[in-house]
Design a protein around this nucleic acid. Sequence first.
DNA 1: GATGAATGAGACTTCATTCAT
DNA 2: CATGAATGAAGTCTCATTCAT
Lengths: 193, 193, 193, 193
Amino acid sequence: MTNSANRQTRASQKRQRLTAAAARVLHEQGVERTTLADIAREADVPVGNVYYYFKTKDELVRAALTEHTAHLDELTGALDELPDPRDRLKGLIAAWVAGRETAARRGCPTGTLAVELGKRADGTLDAEAGAVIRRLLDWTAAQFRTLNLPAPDDLALTLVSAYQGMSLLANALRDPTVMTREGDRLLHWLDSL
Amino acid sequence: MTNSANRQTRASQKRQRLTAAAARVLHEQGVERTTLADIAREADVPVGNVYYYFKTKDELVRAALTEHTAHLDELTGALDELPDPRDRLKGLIAAWVAGRETAARRGCPTGTLAVELGKRADGTLDAEAGAVIRRLLDWTAAQFRTLNLPAPDDLALTLVSAYQGMSLLANALRDPTVMTREGDRLLHWLDSL
Amino acid sequence: MTNSANRQTRASQKRQRLTAAAARVLHEQGVERTTLADIAREADVPVGNVYYYFKTKDELVRAALTEHTAHLDELTGALDELPDPRDRLKGLIAAWVAGRETAARRGCPTGTLAVELGKRADGTLDAEAGAVIRRLLDWTAAQFRTLNLPAPDDLALTLVSAYQGMSLLANALRDPTVMTREGDRLLHWLDSL
Amino acid sequence: MTNSANRQTRASQKRQRLTAAAARVLHEQGVERTTLADIAREADVPVGNVYYYFKTKDELVRAALTEHTAHLDELTGALDELPDPRDRLKGLIAAWVAGRETAARRGCPTGTLAVELGKRADGTLDAEAGAVIRRLLDWTAAQFRTLNLPAPDDLALTLVSAYQGMSLLANALRDPTVMTREGDRLLHWLDSL
DNA sequence: GATGAATGAGACTTCATTCAT
DNA sequence: CATGAATGAAGTCTCATTCAT
């Protein structure tokens, strides 16, 4: 590896460390309660150096949203390997239920981010949080459409809405079984369509 | 009315004004982005005076939660007048849909509060936000139970979860029709039980 | 003195202390090199408390400009007592020369402020610095007009311009005699009109 | 051209580009509001590379002063070609008036630099700004001396002082006509001597 | 020589909370 | 009881300067 490539790689690594740390810490503590120092510490980067990679705190939030989008794409990408769209949706639900402990402790990363960003007077970042959710909606609707089910958009809305609702309740009640119970119901519902 | 009683009344009025203002502003701006000064201004109470009624900002958050509980009780109390529990639940859904514009702009007051408080490391207030949601769950489960439906707690979970989910999505997508579409589906679902 | 009046007076005093300190320190160190802490220390006020009186640093700069305007008004007000406008102008020049040590060390308060504020991209405060100078121009022109001299505005421009020039040179050369020499010349010039 | 000479030339070019950029940007934005990055960008030199040519920001300021001195020498050198010293001085004034738009927008480069540097506690650079002004004073005095006029130093002081004054006022009032009006007066004044 | 990256001190500003009257 | 004023801790952000390659 050349020096130049090495340098660039190290820099990219740091940027990536910061992005990952931001996604993690912002999910855990929320946007407003998280300080740049928190993220810097988690990424093991000096605070002053954060600004070399991200000019504002908001850009770090944006990076976290992008990270969540990437996670989502990774998941749906893996599910796309399954031949049956219904199985893909069941896999999605299974993934949600598998994350029940995290959901109970911190809620859905994207959903809680959207809630916080929605409180802002200036609508800069909330639209971007909404875009991530819409991405999930779109993928889900595509599966329902492939299944030739009527009103696939409404079905997608119902499914994603259920996910956000159960995550919020699991979190509010600090009860991961909410995810299991609702997850089971959603699986049955899918089979009934 | 005696002077003393008069004084107490005036004091209560101020307390009430502060509580109402807290509920309103905290819903609109979120807990972390709201300053005591914001609430004081909205309640038309001098900042320095707030501390006579509420020793900390958290107590104002608590008061807002109590206010939301009162609103909920008012609603369920009115619905209890209806003879048929199914009609009561339909009335609940109708109320949710009626609040679609607010939901699209700010989300569910209790739900968004629970999300924000859930991010705190110290579990001081998040339990109380959960309690308000549980109160709704309990009332809803009671209706299902009266209807002699099986697993009334799960049905309640599904219904309230759907409400939180559709509120979050309406908010994240800034789209009040989410409330209408999901509301219609829930009404049909109720009839199918 | 009542309690209320007392309280208000003390607050005003603090505000006045801050304004005076700002005028002094900003003149000495310049706008950009002066920190809020510098002004706070000079006024013997805790840094955090400064913001109770002035919401931004720029407001403090504005206050300093107002202070300089007040000083100017005081001076011209005193000179207005003189019956002969020519004597008033001579008094003005005498005041300038009297301040030669300060001028040599720090330049003209308003002039140097105008220079610094003029460098700003956003034209917020530079106009206000210009206004103070224009006030001096106006008063000076009024004297020339009363003397029935032709083109009083140009004469005023020449006189004030000379003042700013000699202050700048005295400051740049660290030489108070610049003020004396140019002051003498201006007095002769006045008599020659 | 040898490699070594080539390298040196390229390096000199960079140094020259930085010097010119410093003179320009420092004049426009002022010393304190200008960052090294600003100058580096304007000179199209990587930030990290600036320190190879200038060890500190102050050295860049010094270089800008040198650049202004060079400009001044160029101007006076050209004027020296004129046989009549009075014409040289008139040419100087004409040059000032020709730069009226710049003066109105940014003031005299040397004068405003002197003002800012004069605010420093440590007398490091302010003397050098004064030196540039003194250079102009000296050249001007030489012309008056050649004209056999009495007190040539005082006449020079008056002329340069007038220039700085009119530049400052043009700048503070954002009015280039100040330069024209005062320029005309100075030309008449020259003829009257 | 050249350069992207790193660093840390310090600036401005906000705000929950307390105080003095 | 009421309230303008006070306080200090903490947060975001900037930037001259240095470092590693």
